[in-house]
Structure formats: structure tokens, C-alpha cells
Amino acid sequence: MPKNSFKTRLEIAKNKLSKRNLYKDQQPTSSIGTAFKMSTELVAHVVVGTIIGFILDKTFGTKPWLILIFFFVGVIAGIANVFKSAKNMQK
């Protein structure tokens, strides 16, 4: 009988713990962390796109064109990434 009661208590405690975990999964990082993450990622995408364009321009000798194209592709990638993270936050 005492063993049983312990078991039921353990079950209840485990249930509570799993519920708490579920609640925590919805907000894995604090909002200030997410804000920093999104802003730096937006900038990093643009920078990486521009760098790729610059390198490709140098190798193919098509001076202004690829850097322009890849700059805008980087901007698109950055904005798409922000949309993706925003969607993940709303889940």
C-alpha cells in the first residue's frame, strides 16, 4: 500500500514535470535573445551574399553585375529568414 501510494505520487510528479517542459518548449529563448538573433542574421545574410557576389565577380571578370545580383539575393534570403523565425515564434 505505501509502495503504491509512492508510485502514484511519482506518476503525478512526472506528469507535472512533462507539462512544465511542454510549456517551456514554446519559448526556448528569451525575447531579447531572439531579437538579437534575428537582427544579426538579417545583416549576416546580406553580407554573405555580397561577399559571394564579390568573389564570383573576381573569378569570372563580370565586374559590377554578380555583386549586384547577389546583394539582392542576400537581402531576399535575410528577409525570408526573418519571416521563417517569426513563423516559428508564432507556433
Partner: peptide, 25 residues
């Protein structure tokens, strides 16, 4: 083609965003 290029840019931007975030803060 566009999506693949975007995904590659996102992948390559990881070390930059990771390092710039810590350094800038």
C-alpha cells in the same frame, strides 16, 4: 535555383551571425 542559392547563403551566414552577435554585444 533561387531557393537553393538562398539556402546556401543562409548556411554560410551562420558563422558570421554567430560571431558578430557576441562580439557586437
Amino acid at each position: 535555383p533561387l531557393i537553393v542559392v538562398i539556402e546556401i547563403i543562409s548556411y554560410l551566414s551562420r558563422p558570421i551571425s554567430l560571431s558578430v552577435r557576441l562580439f557586437a554585444n
